[in-house]
């Protein structure tokens, strides 16, 4: 996983709520067995509309997506995270995220930032007024900064540490293999196996 400490870039406002993962990447793109090439499927249906915000050249190169509430609801497909990252996004800011999407993001190093709804709207307006506005997302300080604004966000210490170090969970868990084995020895005897 790519480490995340602080990121400065431009943003793109997505003024929609309930951006489910079927919109982020439609199911037809899920048939791939590799981990690459998903950027072409990002918001595939919406991007067919020339008016869709990602088709506005003013936002070319943006790396921070600022969305309405309930971003990443629905399907567990991690392909949604891969598509956003491979398109060039490092951060998604919204007032509320789907639980599975948020979890998947932190496994991959895409930072989901929860800000209050009014602050998200302020940032969307600021970016619409100046698409080249520099926005900084500082995980070390747990802050989003633009112009004169400094907005704090919450993230638990453990996830923050893991993201800043770029650590993969499997390696961390395998350090506790003895404890897993000990637990396994005490499992109820009637629990089913698939064999």
């Amino acid at each position: 996983m790519e480490a995340f400490t602080t990121h400065t870039g431009t943003a793109v406002p997505l003024r929609r709520s309930n951006v489910d993962t079927d919109q982020i990447i439609p199911a037809v793109w899920l048939k791939q067995v590799s981990r690459t090439g998903f950027e072409r499927g990002l918001f595939a249906a919406w991007r067919e509309d020339p008016e869709f915000v990602l088709n506005d050249a003013a936002y070319d190169g943006a790396s921070i997506l600022v969305s309405g509430p309930d971003f990443g609801t629905g399907s567990s497909r991690e392909h949604a995270v891969w598509a956003l990252q491979q398109y060039g996004f490092r951060v998604v800011i919204a007032a509320r995220f789907g639980d599975i999407f948020r979890n998947n993001s932190t496994k991959m190093g895409l930072l989901p930032v929860v800000l209050p709804g009014d602050k998200v709207a302020d940032l969307q307006s600021a970016v619409e007024a100046d698409p080249k506005l520099e926005v900084t997302v500082d995980l070390r300080e747990r802050q989003v900064r633009w112009a004169d604004e400094v907005i704090a966000f919450e993230i638990d210490d453990y996830t923050r540490w893991r993201l800043m170090e770029g650590l993969d969970d499997i390696g961390l868990t395998l350090r506790h293999a003895d404890e897993v084995a000990a637990y396994e020895n005490g499992r109820q005897p009637w629990l089913p196996t698939t064999v």
């Binding site: 567990s76 497909r77 991690e78 995270v81 599975i100 496994k107 499997i170 868990t173």
Partner: peptide, 8 residues
């Protein structure tokens, strides 16, 4: 769960 967690 997502695919990273499936692997985990």
């Amino acid at each position: 769960i997502g695919t990273s967690e499936v692997e985990h």
